[in-house]
């Protein structure tokens, strides 16, 4: 059906596209799930909707109550869009080094934006949001890193969709951010077929951790720890910005216009494909390329674009 009562009903049920022509191993098929087609522009619409609707159901979010979150952009966009539709005011803490499009998108949906220092990365934004939540107990803090509705959205949505569209999947590769996607989908797929291997991809911490004073200030999302992510994952690879950008460009060559974190996921897929004889690898494209146009990902000099990406939060 292509007619909907609400834009929120269009979240999920995203297309899975065969991009095996990009696989470095002819025996390894590659399919990519395009989450950029969600109405807020990213996979995070799923978690945003699930977190809000779960809170409405259990009574922790009341009509007109202010929603608070920290996000480098995509969760914020999803929450801002849904908050607009449902009539909640929304405040978000955003690291100041996110792309200009992300900020403009949030403004389009009427979000109140509080910037946190670039050097503190997503950790700093999260700490600021936690402090704000403590100061304003009347606000509802969705806390994507620890909210069980985040992985549940993928366990009940993204995972079953992949299984429905590609039951022959042997490997699932996805970015490790809040861990919502990889935990939810990974758990679902392994329950259906324990032989499925789950590979995570993450960006190097690099410049974004300058604000960290000691290791005890580090952070592993409760979504990952509470769901025993260490046992669920089979591999975790770090992928740098240069390779991520190169893969975003290769995707554009086959008509897929996706963000830098999709490039990182594809770099992980390529490594996976090189290590196996035969496989059907499924990955997730978290968002489209629209929010990164100002960074010249596809057209700029590779060295310059890579250097800029080192200082910008794109994952």
């Amino acid at each position: 059906m292509a007619r909907y009562d609400s834009v929120l009903d269009t979240i999920g049920n995203t297309p899975l596209v065969d991009v095996s022509e990009l696989s470095p191993n002819p025996q390894a098929r590659v399919l990519i799930k395009l989450e950029g087609v969600n109405p807020g522009g990213s996979v995070k619409d799923r978690a945003a909707k699930a977190m809000i609707e779960e809170a409405e159901k259990n009574g922790s979010l009341m009509p007109g109550q202010r929603i608070l979150e920290s996000s480098s952009g995509n969760t914020a966009a999803g929450l801002a869009m849904i908050a607009k539709v449902k009539g909640y005011p929304f405040t978000v803490v955003v690291p100041e080094n996110v792309s200009v499009e992300r900020v403009k998108l949030l403004r389009a949906f009427g979000a109140e934006i509080i910037f946190s220092p670039a050097a503190e990365g997503s950790n700093g934004a999260m700490r600021r949001a936690q402090a704000l939540a403590a100061e304003h107990p009347d606000w509802w803090f969705s806390y994507q890193y620890g909210n069980p509705a985040n992985p549940k959205a993928h366990y009940e949505g993204t995972g079953p969709e992949i299984w429905r569209d590609c039951p022959e999947v042997t490997h699932f590769v996805a970015g490790l951010g809040t861990a919502g996607t990889i935990i939810g989908v990974g758990k679902f797929l392994k329950e259906r077929n324990p032989a499925v291997r789950v590979w995570a991809v993450q960006p190097p911490a690099g410049e974004t951790v300058e604000g960290l004073k000691n290791l005890d200030e580090g952070f592993v999302p409760p979504v990952f720890v509470d769901n025993d992510g260490y046992s669920l994952l089979d591999r975790n690879r770090v992928v740098g910005p240069r390779e991520s950008i190169e893969w975003a460009r290769r995707l554009a060559d086959v008509g897929i216009f996706a963000g830098i974190s999709t490039g990182a996921a594809m770099a992980g897929v390529a490594r996976c494909a090189m290590e196996v004889d035969e496989a059907t690898i499924v990955t997730v494209s978290p968002d489209g390329g629209w929010k990164y146009l100002s960074t010249d990902v596809w057209t700029g000099d590779l060295d310059e674009v890579t250097e800029r990406a080192r200082h910008e939060l794109y994952f």
Binding site: T75, L176, T178, Q202, P203, P204, A205, L215, P221
Partner: peptide, 11 residues
């Protein structure tokens, strides 16, 4: 061998 602190990620 790269040592990297675990930090929050995710958009």
């Amino acid at each position: 061998v790269t040592l990297m602190p675990a930090v929050a990620g995710g958009a």
